[in-house]
Computed example of a mutant assay.
Amino acid sequence: MDARFLGIAELVEVPPVAVVVDVMRAFTVAGWAFAQGAEKIVLAESLDEALALKDRHPEWVALKDGPPAPGFDAVNSPGLLRSVDLGGRTVVQKTTAGTVGALAVKEASLVLCASFVVAEATARLLRERRSDSVTFVVTGEDGQADEDLACAQYIAARTTTPGADAADFLRRAAESRAATELAEGLRQGVHPDDVALCLELDRFPFAMAATLEDALMVLRPCAVPSPTDGASN
Rank of each mutant, 00 (worst) to 15 (best):
G189K: 03
H191G: 02
V190H: 00
A123Q: 07
A121S: 14
T160Q: 12
A152H: 02
P192D: 08
L182H: 00
A157R: 05
A121V: 11
L149F: 04
L170T: 01
A108W: 04
E175T: 12
E141S: 15
D193K: 02
V138W: 04
T139W: 01
E107C: 07
R127L: 06
G163Q: 03
S131W: 06
C113Q: 09
G143Q: 09
S176N: 04
S131P: 04
E200M: 08
D165H: 13
Q144L: 14
V111R: 14
T160P: 07
R124F: 07
D202N: 14
L186Y: 08
P162Y: 09
L186A: 13
Q144N: 12
A145M: 12
P205G: 11
G163R: 05
V137I: 09
E200G: 07
Q144I: 13
A145Q: 09
F169E: 00
R203I: 03
A166K: 11
S176E: 03
D202I: 03
Q188C: 09
E181G: 03
A150V: 09
V111Y: 04
G189S: 07
D132P: 09
V117H: 01
A174R: 11
F136E: 10
V118N: 15
P205K: 13
D165K: 11
A179V: 00
E107F: 09
D202K: 02
G185F: 15
T160Y: 04
R187I: 07
V138S: 02
A166I: 02
V111P: 02
D132K: 11
D193H: 02
S133H: 15
D202E: 07
D148Q: 05
T159N: 09
E181N: 14
A145D: 11
L201I: 12
S176V: 03
T159R: 09
A108I: 11
A167F: 15
S133M: 14
A119H: 06
E184L: 14
A164R: 01
E181D: 10
R187P: 00
P192W: 12
A152W: 00
A119Q: 10
R158G: 00
E175R: 13
F169N: 01
T139V: 05
V117Y: 03
L125T: 14
A166P: 05
P192K: 11
E147A: 08
A152N: 05
R158W: 05
L186C: 12
E184I: 05
D165T: 09
V190Y: 00
A123Y: 10
R127Q: 14
C151T: 04
R187S: 05
V138K: 04
A167C: 05
Q153A: 07
G140K: 12
S133N: 12
Q188A: 10
L182C: 02
F116Y: 11
E175N: 13
P205R: 07
V190I: 12
D146V: 12
R177Q: 03
A183G: 12
A145Y: 06
F136P: 10
V138T: 15
H191E: 06
R187Y: 08
A121D: 14
